[in-house]
Design a protein around this nucleic acid. Structure first.
Lengths: 281, 281
DNA sequence: TCCATTGTGGAATATTTATTTCATTTGTGC
DNA sequence: GCACAAATGAAATAAATATTCCACAATGGA
C-alpha cells in the first residue's frame, strides 16, 4: 500500500481522466493497457461487467481490480461509479456542489441553511430541465398558443404563481388572455367561453388539483386546443392535452421548486408574442 | 404466457417509452407504479440495482421482474439494458453540457433559445444571490415575521407571483396571513387592519409599484413591523422597512428572473413556521 | 357470499459478478 | 546467469444481485 493510494481517487470523470493520462507512462504493461482501453471506451467501462471489460481490453478481471487499487479506489466497482456518473444527468460536479451545500448547512444557522436548500433545489431543477428542452415540441406548443384568439390560463394552488406571472407578462405584451382563477366560483363558466379559435394553457403537478384537470378536459372536449405543463407522462393533464411539456422539479423541505417552470413560463409569453409578430407580416 | 409477451419487448428506449405509456392504464397498481418511476427516473433505472430501484419506487424487487416480464423481456436485467443503451454515446460531462448550452443559443431555433436564455438568467440569479445570503439579517427578518399575529403580504405586478406562493405555503403551514391583492379596490382598508402585533412582508422591485410603496409606508407609520424584499439599498421600500433583504435578479429579453426571490419566498414560510414551533416550547 | 383469478410481499434460491489468492512468469540489477 | 522483486494469469472464493417460489391478500364475477 503506497502512500499514493490514500491521497488519490478522484470522484469526477475529468480529474480521473487527467490522473490516468499522468500515470500511464509509469504503469506496468497490463495496467497501461487497461488505462488506454478505459479512456478509449468509457461507455463500455460504465456499463460492462468486470469480465466483459477485461475480455474487451484483453486482460484478466483481476487486472481491472489492480488498476482500480493503483488509482486509489476500493475496487473496480468503485472506479466504475465514476464512469457511470459521467453519463448520468446529474454528475459528480453537481453532487459535489450539493455536498458543499449540505455541509455548509451544519455550520450555518437554521434560516440561511434553509434558503440555501431551496436555492440548491432550484439550481438542480434548472439543470435537469435544461437537458429536457425539446425545440420541436416547444415550437408546436408556441404555435398553438400563438394561433389562439384568447389564451385561457388554468392553474391552481402551487402552480398558480406561474400563471399569475404569465397573465402579467401577456398583459405587458398585449396578448389577450383570461386567467381562470376567479375568487367568485364561476371558473367553469369562464372556461366554457373558450372556443375552437382560442387555446388553453393548463399547468398542474402531482398531486393534481382535481378541478384543474376537469376544466382542462372539458375544454379539450369542447375542441379547444390545450397546451399543458406537467411533471410526468402519466399526468392526467398529459392525457387531454394537444401538446404537453414536461418539467420535473426538485423539492426541499417538502416544497417543490418552481424555478424551471417559472423560467419556462417567462419564455412562453415572449415566444408567443414574437410568433404573432411574424404571422402579421 | 400470453401471446403478448412474445410479440413485444422493444429494444430501443423510445419504443419502450411509448409502450409503457400505452400499457400503463391497464397495468395493476404496483406495476403502474414501476412504470411511472421508470419513465420519471430513467437514469436510476439504467444504473441502479434491482434492489435500489425497487426501494426508490417503493415496491419489491420481484415486482420489477414481473414488470419486465409483462412487457415481454426475459427479466429485469434485459429491460435494464434498454435504459442503458439510451445513455450510451451521450458522453456529456457537466462542463461540456453547460458549454453546449451557452453556445447552443445561437444554433437553436427561436423558442428553445429563448427558454435557455431564461434558464441561464435564472441560474445567474441563484448564484449571485447565494453569495449575498446574510444569516444574521435573515434571522432578524424571520423573527419579526414569526412574532406576528397575522402576516400581511404586499406585492404587485411582477412580484405578485411571489406572495401568491407565500399565501399558499402559509396556508399549508397554518400560518395566519392576509394577501393584500383584492380585486375590489379595498387594499388600503385591508392594510389598515394591521396592528403592532402583526407584521407585513412587502416585495417590490424597480420600477416600484406606487401603491405597494405607499401601503408599506402607511403600515410602517402605523407601527406595523415591515420586512421588505427589494433590489437596492435605495429602494423606497428599504427606507420604511424594519428589516430589508436584497435580491438582485438577472434579466433576459426584458423580463427579470424570479428564481432567487422565489427560492427566498419558499424558504421564509418554512423558516417562520419552524421558528413558531420553537417558540411554543 | 363464495369461488376463482389475479396481484403482491417476502424469503429462498440461483446466478452473476467482483475480489482475493497463489503459483508462475517476467523483468532488473548485480 | 542468478537472485530478487514486481507483475501477471487463472482459478477459488466471497459478495452482490436477479430471479423464482409460495403463502397470502385483494378483486371481480357467479
Amino acid at each position: 500500500m503506497s502512500a499514493d493510494e490514500d491521497t488519490l481517487a478522484p470522484r469526477d470523470f475529468e480529474s480521473l481522466r487527467s490522473l490516468i493520462i499522468d500515470r500511464r507512462s509509469v504503469l506496468p504493461r497490463r495496467l497501461a493497457q487497461v488505462a488506454k482501453y478505459a479512456l478509449d471506451h468509457p461507455d463500455e467501462v460504465a456499463f460492462g461487467t468486470a469480465a466483459s471489460i477485461a475480455g474487451a481490453a484483453d486482460v484478466q478481471p483481476s487486472t481491472l481490480v489492480r488498476f482500480a487499487h493503483q488509482l486509489g479506489y476500493d475496487g473496480f466497482s468503485d472506479l466504475q461509479k465514476v464512469f457511470q456518473e459521467r453519463l448520468r444527468g446529474r454528475n459528480s460536479s453537481y453532487e459535489e456542489r450539493m455536498e458543499a451545500l449540505k455541509t455548509a448547512k451544519e455550520d450555518e444557522k437554521g434560516e440561511a441553511a434553509l434558503v440555501r436548500g431551496f436555492l440548491a433545489a432550484a439550481q438542480r431543477s434548472l439543470e435537469d430541465f435544461s437537458s429536457l428542452v425539446d425545440p420541436a415540441l416547444l415550437s408546436r406548443a408556441v404555435n398553438i398558443l400563438a394561433g389562439a384568439d384568447t389564451i385561457y390560463l388554468l392553474a391552481r394552488r402551487r402552480s398558480y404563481p406561474l400563471v399569475a406571472h404569465m397573465a402579467y407578462a401577456f398583459g405587458k405584451l398585449r396578448v389577450k388572455n383570461n386567467l381562470i382563477a376567479s375568487p367568485n366560483g364561476i371558473d367553469p363558466e369562464i372556461a366554457a367561453m373558450a372556443g375552437r379559435n382560442d387555446a388553453a394553457l393548463a399547468i398542474s403537478f402531482s398531486p393534481y388539483a382535481a378541478d384543474s384537470i376537469s376544466q382542462a378536459r372539458a375544454m379539450s372536449d369542447a375542441g379547444v386546443p390545450v397546451v399543458a405543463i406537467t411533471d410526468s407522462a402519466f399526468s392526467p393533464l398529459a392525457d387531454c392535452a394537444t401538446e404537453w411539456l414536461e418539467v420535473a422539479e426538485s423539492d426541499y423541505a417538502g416544497f417543490r421548486s418552481l424555478s424551471a417552470s417559472m423560467a419556462l413560463c417567462m419564455a412562453l409569453p415572449v415566444a408567443i408574442a414574437e410568433a404573432r409578430l411574424q404571422k402579421q407580416r
